[in-house]
Design a protein around this nucleic acid. Sequence first.
DNA 1: TGATACTGGACCGTTTTAGTACTGTTTATT
DNA 2: AATAAACAGTACTAAAACGGTCCAGTATCA
Lengths: 163, 163
Amino acid sequence: MLRVTKLADYGIVMLTYLAANRESTYTARDMAKIVQLPLPVVSKVLKLLGKAGLLTSQRGTKGGYSLARDPQEITVATVIRALEGPIAVTECIAVNRDCNLELGCPVRTNWHLINHAIQSALEKITLAEMTKPLNQSLVCLNLPVPETASKNLDISYERQQQH
Amino acid sequence: MLRVTKLADYGIVMLTYLAANRESTYTARDMAKIVQLPLPVVSKVLKLLGKAGLLTSQRGTKGGYSLARDPQEITVATVIRALEGPIAVTECIAVNRDCNLELGCPVRTNWHLINHAIQSALEKITLAEMTKPLNQSLVCLNLPVPETASKNLDISYERQQQH
DNA sequence: TGATACTGGACCGTTTTAGTACTGTTTATT
DNA sequence: AATAAACAGTACTAAAACGGTCCAGTATCA
Ligand code: FES
Ligand code: FES
């Protein structure tokens, strides 16, 4: 469905909060209160983020979590990977099997490039940037296929359509 | 899981095939044979694509499907929307509700921009381009946040990491 | 020593997806 | 007109993923 899981969503929100308040540490209970989510859920997310090395954790009394790296060093892509595994837009990218097309799949290599493009985009957005509203966002995806090299360079938002 | 559904995957493959063979029409049974997928599945996808106006369908004997528009006019984004609804990277983008954060969600507006970026990228890739392998694909996502305006302009693929 | 808080993993209900089936309608052919 | 081929619509089932919970274990500090 081209959608990020809720856990990843939660993770981004929590990490963004921690990025904005770097000095102190927060316990899972704290975060649950802040994010207004059930404790077990928050705990699960924090555990995963800790295991991925994005958070440092301190056990025992006075324990809690805090950001392990600079907010500029943590990208949205990294968070997503930490919480839901490798970013793979299609299944055949995740597991490297071929689809059932007769003579090999023609779109496969293109899916790889699309996947790479999306991943690369997510890789460029850091937690530091998530803390403050991005005032502008432009995507230019250049596809210098021989015939259509020029017409893909312009940025057109008008074609957007919703259901 | 930031993944496109199988139906959408199938749809892209089939449409790409039809784009490469525009002259003739193909029945669902034909396509099932070509794509090596069960007929009911293929049929379902083709029906949805027909309803979305991407395919013209002819009933009765000698019936079948064929592309309704020029391959250059059909984008990957359109196909995905036809088969799995609006593109929404997070749930709070799909339904316009606020998450449970105390003072409104700080990352929400940023998610909107990210979603827009991805959608915009998918909007730029047409079926015509899917038929032939894209030899190159560059993404530059400009995020001219005051402080970090310049450093986001470079294109760095080195940071990619997999699980 | 006890209370607090993270760690790890299993667990289960719900939702979504994937795939099937069936009934009806259109159309070309005979 | 009869027939067969093929799409249209919808309902249904099975499987997988997700969202969320729970508990037993371990580390830490007062
Ligand atoms: S290999 Fe995945 S669609 Fe062909
Ligand atoms: S509104 Fe969706 S994460 Fe806050």
